[in-house]
Amino acid sequence: MEELVPFEIATCEMTESSQWGSPLAPDPERPFHPFRIQDPFGLRNAVVPVFRQDTNGQLFGFGTAFNIDQFGTFLTAHHVIDFSGENGTSRPVLLLSMHAIVIGSVAIPNDCFVPVTGYQKVMMDSDDPIGALRGSQERKVAVDLAVMQTSPLGSQVRPPQTVSVCINGWRPRVGDILLAVGYPELDFSELSADSQKMLLSEGMYGAYGRIVDVHLNGVGTANPSPVIEVETDWPPGMSGGPVFNRAGDVVGIVSRSIRAEGDLPGRGYAVDLGRAYEVQPFAPSLDAPGWQVCWGLFLEDEFEPFSVHVSEEAAVSAGNLLRQPHRIVKIANKIGTKDYMLI
């Protein structure tokens, strides 16, 4: 195969090219296999491990999620967190970075384990004509995607950075190269304190792949999500992780995979965000890549937003605390900057 040109991925907050890390280079002998990513101040702050936490506090690794705006909104694959409806016996928890630079080994602050307070999923009627006649037709998940909201962050956790998400204007083509990022060393066993530290510091991996097919209606009734089929080797813990195109935008979510074996290449299936049209009603902040729809709080006679907020109500509350003249405007804001456009 021709030589693979490594991607350069920056978070939205990394506004200067000098802040970007090195190109994400795989093993040249095995370019479509997982490789370790060392980016503790960039991608590690935007792409995070997902745990299941039981009522007794035990943590079990389940997959990957990523941050899409500055308001605590994360995306993952639905199957990563579908345990959370089990009679309230467990909940999804994200492992965010510490608000510190650490030398040596220290305990991870509890603040870094951030609970998911709620999530939305896309549903559809199941193919059950008898149930439809009886008026009791069941519904099923239509897209392997979940939009999660997190609880407010504590003082010891670093605010997450944001990846650029593209939901319009990009279409997958056979032969294109994509890059998935996630935490393949997660498994379903209970995580020890040492394994938690490893995930926080050096558990992130990437895996390149080549598009071999595009399935607009999924790959069967059990998996109706519009998916991109990729020749690659995505380990299970990467489920829910972002899939980047060469421009550095997230265009998919790792949904499922078949591991490479011997001389046989593996297969990965990523939810196609450009055709998962149902995602935007649940994630209304999504706009052009690197931008977020929000409400700007402007001080009187100021032309840059003093702050940005997820809703008009949140902006009103923040304005009331200022006790000075201000205005509130719905805007599209370039994430990590004061740049904006009126909506």
Rank of each mutant, 00 (worst) to 15 (best):
L216Q: 14
E8L: 15
R256S: 14
D176Q: 15
L286P: 01
L96W: 02
M198P: 00
S22H: 12
R134H: 09
N67S: 15
F7R: 02
I343Y: 08
S90V: 05
Q161E: 12
T55N: 15
T232A: 01
D128S: 12
Y183G: 02
V80N: 08
Q324Y: 08
G118Q: 08
E304Q: 12
V212P: 00
D249Q: 15
M198G: 09
A332I: 13
P160G: 10
E300C: 10
M238C: 12
S97R: 13
R210K: 14
L153H: 03
G241E: 00
S307N: 12
L153F: 07
N217Q: 15
M341A: 13
E313R: 14
G237N: 09
T15R: 15
P224G: 05
G175M: 07
A276H: 03
R36W: 05
A222M: 11
I335T: 07
A315R: 00
T73L: 04
E16G: 01
I9H: 03
K121Q: 13
I258E: 09
D69V: 04
D213E: 12
L94I: 02
G169Y: 14
Y119A: 02
V308K: 04
A100F: 08
I103M: 11
S151H: 11
V106Q: 15
T89N: 15
A314L: 06
M14W: 08
G85R: 13
E3Q: 13
A10I: 08
V254Y: 02
D339E: 14
I253C: 05
F282W: 10
E185T: 13
A314E: 06
Y277W: 11
C294I: 04
T117M: 09
V165Q: 03
E13A: 07
R267H: 07
P226R: 14
A315H: 07
S97K: 13
A247V: 05
L95N: 01
F306T: 00
A288K: 10
R171K: 13
P115H: 07
T15P: 00
V316A: 07
Q280H: 10
I258D: 00
S317C: 11
G42L: 04
S311M: 10
L43C: 10
D69A: 07
Q137E: 10
S105E: 15
L178Q: 03
V230W: 01
P115D: 05
D27C: 12
Q280A: 14
P92T: 00
G252M: 03
R327S: 15
I328P: 04
E231D: 13
P242W: 08
D82A: 04
G252P: 04
F244S: 00
A10C: 12
S317I: 14
V293E: 07
W170F: 06
S164E: 05
Q161Y: 08
A142T: 08
L179R: 04
V254A: 06
M124I: 11
F71P: 02
G118I: 06
G218M: 04
R134N: 11
S22T: 09
V310D: 13
Q58D: 13
N223W: 12
D111A: 11
D69F: 06
D176E: 14
F74N: 02
R91T: 08
Q149F: 02
S126L: 14
L94Y: 03
G262E: 01
L133Y: 13
P6C: 06
M123V: 09
F188N: 13
A247W: 07
D125P: 03
I68L: 01
W20E: 05
L200W: 10
R327C: 11
